[in-house]
Design a protein around this nucleic acid. Sequence first.
DNA 1: TGTACATCAGTGAACGCGCGTTCACTGATGTAC
DNA 2: TGTACATCAGTGAACGCGCGTTCACTGATGTAC
Lengths: 207, 207
Amino acid sequence: MTTKKRGYHHGNLRQALVEAALELIEEKGPTGFTLSEAAKQAGVTPAAVYRHFAGREDQIAEAARQGYEIFGDLMEHAYEKGRPSALASFEATGRAYLAFARKFPGHYISMFESGVSITRNPDLAHVANRAFATLERAATELMAGLPEDKRPPARMVSAHVWAMSHGVVELFSRGSPGTRSPFPPEDLLETGIGIYLRGLGLIKPDA
Amino acid sequence: MTTKKRGYHHGNLRQALVEAALELIEEKGPTGFTLSEAAKQAGVTPAAVYRHFAGREDQIAEAARQGYEIFGDLMEHAYEKGRPSALASFEATGRAYLAFARKFPGHYISMFESGVSITRNPDLAHVANRAFATLERAATELMAGLPEDKRPPARMVSAHVWAMSHGVVELFSRGSPGTRSPFPPEDLLETGIGIYLRGLGLIKPDA
DNA sequence: TGTACATCAGTGAACGCGCGTTCACTGATGTAC
DNA sequence: TGTACATCAGTGAACGCGCGTTCACTGATGTAC
């Protein structure tokens, strides 16, 4: 829809295939994606896929890579928006995590549930690191506001928030096991992180 | 190995199939499990499976069901062990979550990553609820120790802890995306819950 | 501007594979007399 | 104890299916002269 770069025949088949894959993954889960069906959805023979990807695995990896790219951008935006308040920045990155999962479920699943191995794909590892580095940077600045003797490692703090965000998404933001969520996921994450930050001594114990 | 009930030919094929499924799931992920291979591993023709299960889906569901059963037992044990201290009970259930994921990875994956739908299977819903009810009971008791005006709903507190536990397992306890864990998962969860509880005002702000 | 050629994105047919599921069967086990 | 019968767990062959992947090809696009 945007820049129609029009290649030889199809005009950007590669991206069309990625988008087809994302739709399939979103609809039918990570298992539901097949190279053949993605090709069909893009109006092309399965064999054509091999002009653009090494195979099925590679196609998912590209979907995940684009996901990490978007994710990283969102995190950075959130981080910047909260500045100069370290607390606001940190909270915003947490919210951004959930917002990303909601808005880009296909990407999210590709990244975290498709079985794509980050360790085996250096490209992926690189973009993924950028996203997580933002969260960690926010944590580092946050810790700077604490007395040194009661300052947990920033990596640990970011890991905690990452874990809670991920847990909320997996358990309560999609129809996985938790029947239905007892609370809106956004509220759950907001209050959870709020209590956590109070535990760090960063929020006054008001109400 | 234990009670050899010896049925007609095989002697408890049903359970042997469940165990084969668990091994396969543990080894090769939720996708890696196939009815045929489970049958083969149990030394039996694929068709034999249909004497004991309605199909592939049903076989995974039974693996998950047994997982929830074990999980529920572990949670209850942890809960009882911590008594009469509500705090100890609550912390113990959190730890039990991670211990379960570590000790019974096949079950864990069947329950949370296999795509088995709890809502569509009443049997499953029932055993799952028992497990989560324990966590919630622990949370309720814990909240009783707080002044009423600053007492978040027990359901919410248990959801928070559940989410963080699940997140730690998914992200740092297995080789998913997080490269390698920056900290031992047990420590991560312990400290995370510790900070959270402090935020609730349940632990003194000592060290 | 027109023609000859090179490129290479996508085709279409074919492959071998393992899957989940069905079916009529067989033969070991348990039971009634 | 021995015989006839009923049960039903597991067999073996077959099925249709869609998968990922390969290959020689074709024909539209871009380029050199």
